[in-house]
Amino acid sequence: MRKNSNHRDYFGLESKLSDADREIQQSIRQWVDQRILPEIETHAQNHSMDIRWMTELAELGCFGGQLSKEKSGRDWSYLTYGLAMQELERGDSGLRTMASVQGGLVMYPIAEFGSEEQQQKYLSKLATGQCIGCFGMTESRHGSNPKGMETRLVAKDDYFLLRGDKAWITNASIADIGIIWAKNEEDHIVAVLLDMKKNGVSVKTIDDKWSLRASITSHILMDDVRIEASDILPHARGLRSALTCLNKARFGIAWGAVGAALACCDTAMDYACNREQFGKPLAQFQMVQKKLAETVTAIAQAQLMNYRLAELADNGQVTAGQISMAKRANVEMALNTARTCRQILGAEGLRSSYPIMRHLMNLETLVTYEGSHDIHLLITGQEITGYNAFT
């Protein structure tokens, strides 16, 4: 039996947390342990989620917690927000994704780019889970090249028509509203606050995905949907505004990936310390200790990066390249950790009675979304060289 659990926080970073941060972290950790872990494997197997999670996540403050109280947030620091995302993804990447979308990709743009009327109408409802949102930028023909988007907002006499499609959109099938990015007739990118129940909007759930099976992902088709001027976010100006939103989500992914890695490491550590081969625990074998020690090292490195990233963000000094570096490096670390931990369990690691394969499949999505693995290298590369490799 394992004698200690210092692998989860090997450099004692949590000892520096404030009492408030520790209380928030513990409340989310407890909710994940008691509410999510007993049922998440069933949901993943059945490709389902419990809609009640949304209300419960809201009660925990996970929707827009980093926004100011005046904008229906809780004045969380970036460190607090990161800790929350880490705990959610320790449960499941899909769970953290739903929270990231609601807070970082829906509430944030309304708070940052929306009118006073839009903020008053939606932010409190989104924060409490009474309203569910989605974020539509990716299209079937345009993933890593958002400038190529074909969704159009066409001006008429006193209204607009929205036409196009969005692909791989989290929460769309259960969403009440969507932040949809489109090009106007001047070819400028604008953000539309779309009522998902409007005539001309159709949503199809993607049922054949192997990853993020405990969250809802869909395609959105918009066929000449009538849009009023009051539905357009007035202060969203071009692709830069959309990418600002994505940086909020990428920050959450950098922290969340560590949560998934911790879940895999916990499982492998417990298994290795309790499973016997050749008359002694697996954890006593040199090669198993090598795997575990390398895994704990990689997690500790990611944690150190995340804590510094949060410090920079809280001081208003973080850059897009730093966020991209952390997102890419930590997702790669978590994916490698999941693979290594699965090997420690051998064939048992393939079973749904252990969480590793579920995390492994989920992490394959994290490699791709909110900027693919290689795109993040180019974002950091542009910052360190001064050259734009995208064109």
Score class of each variant (00 low, 15 high):
residue 210 W to V: 09
residue 171 N to K: 04
residue 186 E to N: 15
residue 213 R to L: 03
residue 189 I to F: 06
residue 247 N to I: 04
residue 252 G to N: 15
residue 263 A to E: 01
residue 267 T to H: 06
residue 247 N to Q: 12
residue 236 A to I: 00
residue 280 K to S: 14
residue 191 A to Q: 05
residue 180 I to S: 07
residue 225 V to T: 12
residue 179 I to D: 00
residue 169 I to T: 08
residue 186 E to G: 12
residue 234 P to F: 00
residue 191 A to P: 05
residue 172 A to E: 09
residue 249 A to M: 11
residue 266 D to H: 01
residue 282 L to N: 12
residue 254 A to N: 07
residue 255 W to D: 07
residue 251 F to C: 01
residue 193 L to P: 05
residue 169 I to W: 00
residue 255 W to H: 14
residue 180 I to V: 11
residue 192 V to F: 04
residue 247 N to L: 08
residue 210 W to I: 09
residue 282 L to V: 13
residue 232 I to A: 00
residue 194 L to Q: 09
residue 182 A to H: 05
residue 235 H to S: 14
residue 261 A to D: 02
residue 275 R to C: 15
residue 234 P to R: 02
residue 199 N to R: 15
residue 183 K to Q: 14
residue 239 L to K: 03
residue 188 H to I: 06
residue 220 I to K: 02
residue 205 T to C: 05
residue 221 L to F: 13
residue 247 N to F: 06
residue 186 E to K: 15
residue 233 L to H: 03
residue 208 D to N: 15
residue 178 G to N: 11
residue 250 R to H: 02
residue 166 K to I: 01
residue 213 R to W: 01
residue 171 N to I: 00
residue 257 A to C: 13
residue 225 V to P: 11
residue 251 F to T: 05
residue 278 F to E: 13
residue 209 K to Y: 09
residue 230 S to V: 09
residue 185 E to V: 10
residue 248 K to W: 13
